[in-house]
Design a protein around this nucleic acid. Structure first.
Length: 493
RNA sequence: GGUCGGGUGGCCGAGUGGUUAGGCAGAGGUCUGCAAAACCUUGUACGUCAGUUCGAAUCUGAUCCCGACCUCCA
């Protein structure tokens, strides 16, 4: 079995990963609040966790991957619910807003080739459980009611010797000294660091449910506490989310779980870092943002061309999930080219053959493949794993060109290399070759191209360069690249 | 102001107390009818100042700069 190490945000260090139940993993990842079109930054986070999920599966774990949809309770600065605001703005039912953006989110996740979570619970589907958890926290003396709203008592929590601020490295003194005058119902709180777990709805608030304290709605952090507990148990293995959720969201989530059942929700907390653009946080107001669609189409002043979703996925894999990733046109162009090279090498590898019983290169190749997996075991180090795989590229190409002797790779190793390369490329990295999209439907084109290249080859044999170049240039104009190799020509779109 | 994370070659981006990251771009070469592709070779580096050390870009301290978070955020 592989020795997997993960960086635990809670401990601020890498730890050996040991699941609670042997062979099984419960993983909860904070999903999006569906109040607007999905942001490319969200995509990075969910692609990161997708690779983590995929790799855990690759290692043979049975994983239950839960990723929620937040469709209520997430307040804006002005105190208005994000979903309500969207509904009011577009004159829609809140659930219409939710459905629209949830659909868009799912579509985008498909475009980025992420695997679906095993359970995707929604906050509004768990109001009852949330009310129960509020009650449990009250019963444990860690929450108080004020005018129909219920607040978590952080001071009491600390006095009971429980750690508030552990995850985000915050001290209660700092939190207490902090003032934010514009917070809704700030005056109702006993302490500034307390937070709402049930909020009484104002008369014009659309989303509302009956609860013992008032007609209202749950606080933002509650749904994750509730749904992770419901589907993964009071304590589970991995909790993930974006770095920006550490505080207050995850900190409060922990407090709620501890407050309700006196147990830590997750053993390992994984946080992904932010996606920047041109060195800065993406921000619509500062004219420094780009949508996924714009990235695909190239229709943005920030980029010079469109990029395929898989090239973007590759771009994301080239950095570690805990590092910020700077999105620039130059970086995307480099990733795009590198990705194509990897795809070509993969295609070449699959066409290679060997009849040799043993090979002088076997050990080197074996080492590279094992090395890639070993890098993944080191806190899901995709850039290093990718670098390893790239070491294979010159070997593959040289072998195909006959620059490496045919008997230097054994039949057996070549077969397992194909299988393992494919497993890493497809199953772990979650990539596919854009040229193979629609797989197998290019039969007709394939035959046409074989004919065209055949004609061109005849022309070349007759040194009829005009015809040969005319074909090549004509195909190039149609977006088809011809590559002349030692054993004839090949083509790609 | 508080907390955390960074500053690596032309651009991204890993990593490490002494040994090649990798990708893209650049240079030279091989191949080619010419190209492209491919292959080979190759340069450029660790913010600044001190300190620890036989040796630091890697550890420590100071300093400058950047980013994120501080109840909107993936």
């Amino acid at each position: 079995m592989h020795n997997l190490e993960v960086y635990n945000s809670l401990k601020r260090s890498k730890e050996q990963f040991k699941p609670i139940a042997e062979g099984k993993i419960g993983m909860y990842v904070c999903g999006p609040t569906v109040y607007s079109d999905v942001h490319i930054g969200n995509c990075r986070t969910f692609v990161s966790f997708d690779v983590i999920y995929r790799f855990l599966l690759y290692l043979g774990y049975k994983v239950r991957y839960v990723r929620n949809i937040t469709d209520v309770g997430h307040l804006l600065d002005d105190g208005e619910d994000r979903i309500s605001k969207g509904a009011r703005k577009h004159n829609l039912e809140p659930m219409e807003v939710v459905q629209r953006y949830m659909n868009g989110f799912h579509k985008m996740m498909d475009i980025f080739n992420t695997k679906k979570p095993d359970i995707e619970p929604r906050a509004t589907g768990h109001i009852l459980e949330q009310i129960e958890m509020v009650q449990a926290i009250i019963d444990n003396g860690l929450a108080y009611e004020k005018n129909g709203s219920v607040y978590f008592n952080t001071k009491k929590y600390l006095e009971e010797g429980k750690a508030y601020g552990e995850l985000s490295g915050r001290k209660i003194d700092d939190l207490l000294s902090m003032t934010r005058d514009d917070l809704k119902n700030q005056d109702e709180k006993d302490h500034p660091s307390d937070f709402a777990i049930w909020i009484k709805a104002s008369p014009d608030h659309i989303m509302r449910w009956n609860a013992p304290w008032s007609v209202g709605f749950p606080g933002w952090h509650l749904e994750c506490s509730v749904m992770s507990t419901k589907y993964l148990g009071e304590t589970f293995d991995i909790h993930g989310g974006g770095n920006d959720l550490k505080f207050p969201h995850h900190e409060n989530e922990i407090a709620q779980n501890v407050g309700a059942c006196n147990c830590q929700p997750a053993r390992y907390w994984l946080h992904t870092n932010m996606l920047l653009m041109n060195g800065r946080k993406m921000s619509k107001s500062e004219d420094n943002s780009i949508t996924p669609q714009e990235l695909f189409s190239g229709d943005s002043k920030h980029i010079s061309q469109g990029y395929h979703p898989m090239a973007l996925r590759f771009f994301m894999l080239q950095s570690h999930y805990r590092s910020t990733l700077d999105l620039t046109d130059d970086a995307l162009k480099a990733a795009d080219k590198g990705f194509k090279r990897l795809c070509d090498a993969r295609k070449t590898l699959m066409s290679l053959e060997s009849s040799s019983a043993n090979g002088s290169k076997d050990q080197e190749i074996r080492g590279i493949l094992d090395g890639a997996i070993a890098e993944m075991c080191d806190d899901f180090n995709t850039p290093k794993a990718l670098a390893k795989i790239f070491e294979l590229v010159p070997i593959i190409n040289s072998y195909a060109d006959g620059k490496i002797a045919a008997d230097s790779i054994s039949q057996e190793l070549l077969a397992s290399a194909k299988k393992e390369f494919e497993a890493i490329y497809t199953d772990v990295f979650g990539l596919y070759d854009p040229q193979e999209e629609g797989g197998g439907s290019h039969d007709a084109l394939d035959k046409v191209m074989r004919l065209v290249l055949d004609i061109r080859q005849d022309a070349r044999t007759n040194k009829d360069w005009d015809t040969s170049d005319k074909i090549r240039d004509g195909l190039a104009a149609a977006g088809i690249t011809v590559k002349d190799g030692k054993d004839g020509s090949s083509w790609s779109v």
